[in-house]
Write a protein that binds this DNA or RNA. Sequence first.
DNA 1: CATGAATGAGCTTTCATTCAT
DNA 2: CATGAATGAAAGCTCATTCAT
Lengths: 234, 234, 234, 234
Amino acid sequence: MSSTAKSGRQPVASKKATASKTGKTAKPGVREQNAQATRDSILRAATKVFAKHGYDGGSVEKISTAAKSYDRMIYYYFGSKEGLYIEVLEGIYRRMNEAESRLALDVAQPLEALRAVIRFVLDYYRKHPEFITLLNTENLHKGKHIAKSLRAREYSSPAIAILGEIMQNGVAQKLFRDDLQTRDVYLLIASLGYFYLSNRYTLSAFLGDNLEAPDALAHWEGFVLDTVLRTVTR
Amino acid sequence: MSSTAKSGRQPVASKKATASKTGKTAKPGVREQNAQATRDSILRAATKVFAKHGYDGGSVEKISTAAKSYDRMIYYYFGSKEGLYIEVLEGIYRRMNEAESRLALDVAQPLEALRAVIRFVLDYYRKHPEFITLLNTENLHKGKHIAKSLRAREYSSPAIAILGEIMQNGVAQKLFRDDLQTRDVYLLIASLGYFYLSNRYTLSAFLGDNLEAPDALAHWEGFVLDTVLRTVTR
Amino acid sequence: MSSTAKSGRQPVASKKATASKTGKTAKPGVREQNAQATRDSILRAATKVFAKHGYDGGSVEKISTAAKSYDRMIYYYFGSKEGLYIEVLEGIYRRMNEAESRLALDVAQPLEALRAVIRFVLDYYRKHPEFITLLNTENLHKGKHIAKSLRAREYSSPAIAILGEIMQNGVAQKLFRDDLQTRDVYLLIASLGYFYLSNRYTLSAFLGDNLEAPDALAHWEGFVLDTVLRTVTR
Amino acid sequence: MSSTAKSGRQPVASKKATASKTGKTAKPGVREQNAQATRDSILRAATKVFAKHGYDGGSVEKISTAAKSYDRMIYYYFGSKEGLYIEVLEGIYRRMNEAESRLALDVAQPLEALRAVIRFVLDYYRKHPEFITLLNTENLHKGKHIAKSLRAREYSSPAIAILGEIMQNGVAQKLFRDDLQTRDVYLLIASLGYFYLSNRYTLSAFLGDNLEAPDALAHWEGFVLDTVLRTVTR
DNA sequence: CATGAATGAGCTTTCATTCAT
DNA sequence: CATGAATGAAAGCTCATTCAT
């Protein structure tokens, strides 16, 4: 590379003429020497890159650069781009699940609990935009990667299970309708939380540009709370 | 004029020796010479390909092959891959808009009209899966392509406008609540119609695989109708 | 093409929706209908484009666009890109020759005549930068195109012939040395006029950036006049 | 880690079916794995190819083939075609500079030293035709690449500096005129050496074909020596 | 004659992946 | 384990040129 032209990676040579200060040139990366750290770093970088550019748009080089590592390491730790992508998917599911299980809910208070669940879902989507784009990307691919993961399936049930308990209690307390399926309520909440954020850019071209403004978000949360409760309660 | 190089019908010659890099030889060989047909064919193919593979995954070659044309023609008619993609986006918006305007609604019957709108939206999404994946793709890119289109913006208002009229009538007839924004109702309907289909593959890994089954779709439609009406009516 | 994205050529369609004011759309170019004009326009455009971008860098499309014509016309009138290039070369030689023959010299006044020739050469190079870059381009190609032109050769002798006469008179009048070849004097003048301008960009990186400033040019002209006369006179 | 995609040694598979677009298969097959050698080989090949075909005419493929390497390596080491070209320019300047600094001159003998410099310049141009065509190419591009190189600028001053010393001594010894600028003398020498060779192909079409013959070169060297000395001495 | 659509080879660049130390 | 060099296919785009009205 020339001294001034921009380029991706700086390999060897180039500035050999300039008198190097350090005799031994210990620069190249301090030799990370920490397997787990390298692995995690790649995984984190990959989550970001895939979330931003999709599967095809997320190149191995972008990831390894973002992870301050090397392409080679991706193959070393994850076997292939696809393998890495699958682990990324597993990761976002796992973290979502963990966050949900940290929710301290009193299912004996179904109204409050339901409100808390709704708020949690909306909040989680807002704070984890990568969750949304990665799921969209995976759906573009018809879920073929997640299908290859055994682990991902484990993360499914808990979310529904909690909501099921709340519903049961609500029905028992005659607060909630008894003709609703937990799954539908789950989808209702997810739909309202997800779509608003997932499609905010194209919606902006439609409706005006305020969807992400704090008051707009608050307004939407109010609407969602109202709508779900109106649907669920008797 | 030059003495040696004016004939104008020399048979190319020149670089025949060079090993040809590109394959894709032969083709029936009858120059079609039909501008509009070629253009349309490319646009149709591009819609399919981008819908299936996303922007990065949808290669120019895939498109030109599907259109039974040549890479070159894409640049001839659309200037660039991005230019083509933008026209694809404009197309799906336009068609959605046209379909909606073909809806014969009696806004004086707000309940019926609202039900019709809901059914239309759900139906349209179901019958046009490319609409969903293309919008998701565009949102992955933060709407940067649609932002470049002047045309796309025109297609926004009508959808909301119709719903607004229905709402107005409903309120006037004391059937609907008067504290709702049209926009929120629009988002409610769109969310419930969109998310269910958009995320059906990852949801399947979660909930079981029947989301696309006819009875599952019918059940969901029932739930959506019920939920929206419950939200909107007094 | 999308409405906003930039592109080279605007073919068909695009703005069909917009109500066209002129019913018959007589726009596309007024149908030039003038063979010679088209031909000349292409030739002029080609001279500019080849002068600016060289032979390989000067694409047929750039030329036809600059000429407000069509690629096809280039083949119609010139047979090939090379044919057009050869005519361009012939043109710059011819015009140089014509300009030189318009010089009204009194060879009986050899000192004055020589000064006039020098000034003419320097002036011509300065006013016709395309002459320089086209010759450089042709020399890059080892003169293989000019070799194909019968006409070009005709333009050679006059330049030397005139200088020969001046030299002869100068020698006869005992003003000039008698041991010089006309050819060498010709090369001396050409070298000093050509190199300074031809290489002004790389020289600027070397010497500072004032080579094209009026006073710098004037200074150089003075130096050249002095040097040539010093060389030629006794 | 994923259960299905971690092996890391899967034999590629995937897109085997797709008709491959690029040829250039096979190669002895023994990965060379020698960074500096590869880099140098590319740089050498690029110097030749750019010198022969210009910037636009010098394709990446021509270069990589001549270097017995791969297109990809050019981007690996030089970032882009332009980056490679800039390094090529830096190289020819550097080598010219080094050669000049190897000239053992006795500036106390200004006449001899000046003659040596002239002979060196003429000789260097003759032996390094790539120097000439590359500079011409760079000037066609208005020096925009060299302007991007920080390094290139360093190579400028020495050439002038040496000549300056000679001039100073010559003036001090009353051998040389004292009203001359070093820069002009430098340009005089360079012009006479450069133009003759740079334009030899078009000149041949003009003057006859013997410019490169040994005796023609010798004659020109004599003329240049005589002319410069005549200009410089009192 | 002029216009514009079509063609296929070529271009620069980037991709995922593997080899060598 | 880490590092970096190598590889070949494919990407998006442009080229000169020809066919069809």
